[in-house]
């Protein structure tokens, strides 16, 4: 349905523009989360078939496409793991430079 595709496009634009223009590291990580959720919404909305039910075999006879849903499950967990590592790196950066702005990360040698 075109409504979901337009929403995915708007979310991708919001995420990418916010990732480029922000300097706060926490906002950058939130933009990564928004981009990843938009892509997964596109995958699950492509699996929907009109008039079909959820992929549970004892309730429905014709089901939606179950393959993108299995892929999305793995992607959600890996996205959360990436967020955890990124936040740990931000905590370590704060200990060394005492700020979370990307303009203060100018030293090449630790």
């Amino acid at each position: 349905m075109p409504g979901t595709l337009i929403a995915v496009l708007v979310l991708l634009i919001i995420g990418i523009v916010a990732l480029i223009l922000n300097t706060n590291l926490f906002k950058m990580i939130m933009a990564l989360t928004i981009i990843e959720s938009a892509v997964l919404l596109f995958a699950v909305s492509g699996a929907y078939i009109k008039g079909a039910g959820a992929p549970l075999a004892d309730i429905n006879e014709n089901m939606v496409n179950p393959l993108p849903q299995a892929l999305t499950l793995t992607a959600i967990v890996i996205g959360a793991a990436t967020t955890a590592i990124a936040l740990s790196l931000v905590i370590k950066i704060y200990k060394h430079t005492k700020s979370v702005s990307s303009e203060d990360l100018t030293r090449l040698k630790g």
Binding site: T33, V64, T72, I76, A80, L87
Partner: peptide
């Protein structure tokens, strides 16, 4: 709503619970 209950449970527990707590 898109007939994907497994993905809904995963996103509820991970996105709304874990990611917010980590932040």
């Amino acid at each position: 709503l898109h007939r994907a209950p497994d993905v809904a449970v995963a996103e509820a527990s991970v996105g709304a619970g874990l990611t917010t707590g980590l932040f």
